[in-house]
Design a protein around this nucleic acid. Sequence first.
DNA 1: GGATTATTCAACCATCTGGTTGATCTTTCT
DNA 2: AGAAAGATCAACCAGATGGTTGAATAATCC
Lengths: 125, 125
Amino acid sequence: MVQGHTSRELRLDTVFHALSDATRRAMLRRLAAGERKIGDLAEPFDMSFNAVSKHVKVLEDAGLILRRIDGRAHVCSLAPQPLKAADDWLRFYESFWSQSFDALDQLFRAQNEAARNSGIKGKRK
Amino acid sequence: MVQGHTSRELRLDTVFHALSDATRRAMLRRLAAGERKIGDLAEPFDMSFNAVSKHVKVLEDAGLILRRIDGRAHVCSLAPQPLKAADDWLRFYESFWSQSFDALDQLFRAQNEAARNSGIKGKRK
DNA sequence: GGATTATTCAACCATCTGGTTGATCTTTCT
DNA sequence: AGAAAGATCAACCAGATGGTTGAATAATCC
């Protein structure tokens, strides 16, 4: 019964979910170059304007973009803080991937860790 | 018609999706301490063993864990490479979040960038 | 005022998601 | 051999997701 479900966890849920779609990631890349109105964001994609509008909403709900209304146009800009939150979570694992151990090394290492930590089912059969 | 959909894109889709669930993130944290059999992974959570088994499959399909079969137990270990791929994607934005600019600074900056970069559809018709 | 532009909202649809239960399979214990 | 343990598979379900179309709203152009 761990299941903390802090608001920070919920936030990470929505941020990672927003990032799990290539269309939305491409939009963020585009916004890194500067503000874009939604129509401009839609232009490169082979889907309806409405579909793009929905993607923008997902990004907005995740806090990844800000929307400024300028006349009849909605202008979007990048809001990078949630990306930092996601990166903070990921960087916990930096030591694992930076050690360039291959699958076997990793297996060995993990086995050692398991033996030290749990001690339980060290050997079987 | 951008829509590259390289296999690397597909990979990021599945990795970010796998990370978008707090239960799965907790499992990865647990595996960072060493190998665990699926039953051990299931123990902290208030859900059926089968539900946990499905989560493990999602992580496995995303390449985030390896599974080794040991007698009747399936032993999981962390496979950190896809986490690095996700981090690589995220770090592109490091300059944005590290500059601690607030929303207004960012707006200003993005506007300048937009003026310099696009120029294209500044006005049409 | 009327047309056009930029966008949202609402309804619909197929598929995916995260959970459940029940049956099955293999391995280990006694 | 039979029971228990560890896990998968299959079917089912409610709700979310990603797309569509059509209608409505608000701002700008003529």
